[in-house]
């Protein structure tokens, strides 16, 4: 059954409008003065409010995916395009080096992307790219608030992704292979 709530008619004081407006402004002014004096109410009571105080995420948080470099500052991505293939919203777009492209910046890896773009407007932070990556080159990191003024700005290119991604020190597979191959070039002789 519908309950009809009686709407109380406004009193004369309320109908004059301005006094209530001023009441409201008083609250605003009080907070303003407190902020000016450095006594933000929220800061005083706890951790603060977003966006003045960015939200601290826990360690396992999976935010925006960025590319990482290895401990020697080389691009880890070898442009295998598995992330591009697996990406459900088709946010990732890789331009492979092609036959004439620049070789990888570390020996033996042979290959790295000419361009690597993630459209952050499309990305759903699902983490499949990180899961599928055979090179540990892409990680969901802690950024959750990505902003931009244009759509183009939200397409992050290789430079930006690498710069945001930072360094991930892991197993240097290709370097290890190269070292193993170099070792085999010389005949093992017992040191005497």
């Amino acid at each position: 059954m519908t309950k009809v709530v009686d709407r109380k008619p406004l009193t004369f004081y309320e109908r004059t409008y301005l006094p209530t407006l001023l009441e409201g402004l008083k609250v605003t002014a009080r907070h303003f003065m407190r902020s000016v004096k450095g006594g933000n109410a929220a800061l005083a009571t706890g951790d603060g409010y977003y966006p003045e105080v960015p939200w601290k995420v826990s360690e396992g948080y999976r935010g925006a995916p960025y590319l990482v470099k290895d401990q020697e500052g080389n691009t880890k991505c070898v442009s295998c395009q598995l992330c591009e293939f697996v990406c459900p919203p088709k946010a990732i777009r890789i331009t492979p080096p092609g036959p004439e492209g620049v070789p990888a910046d570390r020996p033996n890896a042979e290959k790295m992307p000419r361009e690597f773009e993630i459209n952050m407007l499309r990305c759903i932070f699902c983490g499949l790219c990180q899961e599928v990556c055979p090179e540990e080159a892409i990680f969901l990191q802690q950024h959750y608030s990505l902003t931009g003024l244009t759509r183009e700005e939200m397409v992050y290119d290789k430079e930006r992704l690498l710069q945001l991604g930072g360094v991930h020190a892991g197993i240097q597979k290709w370097k290890h292979k190269l070292e193993e191959a170099r070792e085999q070039e010389s005949f093992p002789v017992k040191a005497d």
Partner: peptide, 12 residues
């Protein structure tokens, strides 16, 4: 193939 080298992954 040198022509197809690193050009595109075949599954695409």
């Amino acid at each position: 193939s040198k022509d197809f080298r690193f050009k595109m992954r075949v599954w695409f």
